[in-house]
Amino acid sequence: MKKETMIKINDVSMRFNLGIEKEFSLKQWFVNIFNPRKFKKEKQEFWALKNINFEIKTGEVIGFIGSNGAGKSTLLKIVAGVMKPTKGSIETYGNICPMIELGAGFDMQLTARENIYLNGAILGYSKDLLDSKFDEIIAFSELEEFLDVPVQNFSSGMIARLAFSIATIVDPEILIVDEILAVGDIAFQAKSEAKMMEMITGGTTVLYVSHSLEAIKKLCSKVVWLEKGNIKEIGNTKDICDKYENYTIKHMAGNYDI
């Protein structure tokens, strides 16, 4: 396969304002006007990502590792287009399927049938695609009997099954995965995991966040290790995973005095 650049991340930085919540109301606003010192203090900044640079080529499966708050999810959201970076830019070549949060946009009052179209539209699928894949979605989710039942009467496992089935009907060029999603009961978990593995190993470009080093080692061709918004290491899966493991063990030992 020809290796073309699929995603290019150019010097991306992302800033969040931590104290932002306090600026929400007029009352606070007035208080702040008369208290400039406090106003300044609230503008505390937090850089979730700092000058991130790398490229992803066609067919690569990139794993992202790092502790909580390292900026992994923020980076995925920027690639998915949900957030615009404060600085820098992102270029993507191909349609993206973000499997970040399933079932976003389900309306609990609507039936499964209605939600397939609503959720599909929210994910950017066309009506034609949904019409042609409708039976496949239903068959995969195994919810034939409940097609015209409002989703609010579903169990959470059933909702997750429906959401998973809708999200995975496309053949995306870029797949973004935040942890392997195994949803539903044991049988469906096996089925959904197999489906995700099929999507990941099917030759598409994958960005994959996980805390399971096992899964990362098994699936990824390259690993990016993020720490406090910086790329700490980038490269070969095995090397980086080993380094990360050592680092975490050392850190834990430091914290807990083992």
Binding site: D107, Q109, L110, E114, Y117, L118, A121, I122, G124, S126, K127, P150
Partner: peptide, 21 residues
Amino acid sequence: KKYKFLLQQLVSRDFKVKYKR
């Protein structure tokens, strides 16, 4: 054009929810 379908879905959702019960 791309988001016409989404728009349509959102409007019809509002109708369905408004009168469902």
